[in-house]
């Protein structure tokens, strides 16, 4: 605890948090923007690779997507560094917050998953999709979703968190029901066919 307070009151953390360089809270805002850009560089392409493994856009050769791994690692390091500078600004709140560890844990899982996907699909094999690769891709999508949700919820306290989680689950269930309903409609009601055949 002592250490966390020291960290939070250190010169760098105070400067990042409170400096009004360029007329506003420039350092803090700038770092947050970098963090969002890194998110897009890492998560976006990773989602595309996962989707390709799960079967979308089959006409794109999977092996060719390896070229985007450089972009993903650049995004990862950008976010690791900007996160490392942002962390001390509220060290006490973040490092005592369970949801911060949920965020870090899911990011760790996702990044380890990305390395495993790289080894499974790209190294030495020309992009053959195995069942293991599909499992990894699904796990990767789930971990990134959890990471984004947890990261956003860090800005709020208990009550709002549970309400938001509830609303998110409700929204996802609604989408699921709507998709299922749409598919059934698109397929056409099977019972009418069997009725017609039976008469």
């Amino acid at each position: 605890m002592e250490f966390l307070y020291w960290l939070q009151d250190s010169g760098l953390a105070t400067w990042v948090r409170e400096s009004d360089a360029l007329g506003s809270t420039f350092p803090y805002t700038f770092l947050l923007a970098l963090h969002a850009i890194g998110l897009a560089m890492l998560v976006g392409p990773n989602v595309a690779v996962d989707l390709r493994i799960l079967g979308y856009g089959r006409s794109v050769p999977l092996a060719s997507l390896e070229g985007f791994f450089r972009l993903m690692w650049a995004g990862f390091w950008l976010n690791a560094l900007s996160g490392l500078v942002l962390l001390p600004t509220s060290a006490v709140t973040f490092l005592t917050d369970p949801i911060f560890y949920v965020k870090l844990g899911s990011i760790t899982l996702a990044v380890v998953g990305l390395r495993l996907i790289h080894r499974e699909v790209f190294v030495g094999r020309s992009g053959i999709v195995t069942t293991r690769a599909k499992t990894l891709a699904g796990a990767s999508l789930a971990s990134w979703s959890i990471a984004i949700v947890a990261g956003r919820l860090m800005a709020y306290n208990g009550n709002v968190r549970w309400a938001t989680l509830g609303a998110l689950v409700a929204l996802l269930l609604l989408l699921l029901v709507m998709t299922a309903g749409w598919r059934m409609l698109a397929r056409g009601p099977g019972w009418s066919v069997s009725l017609r055949r039976s008469t």
């Binding site: 969002a36 850009i37 998110l39 897009a40 560089m41 890492l42 998560v43 976006g44 392409p45 990773n46 989602v47 595309a48 990134w144 979703s145 984004i148 949700v149 990261g151 956003r152 919820l153 800005a155 709020y156 009550n159 709002v160 968190r161 309400a163 938001t164 509830g166 609303a167 998110l168 929204l171």
Partner: peptide, 21 residues
Amino acid sequence: DWGWSLCEILHFAGLALLVGI
């Protein structure tokens, strides 16, 4: 309680998909 934070989550997920891809 949940409106603003839920929209933030969707905004960031959308950002990753849109800007990333």
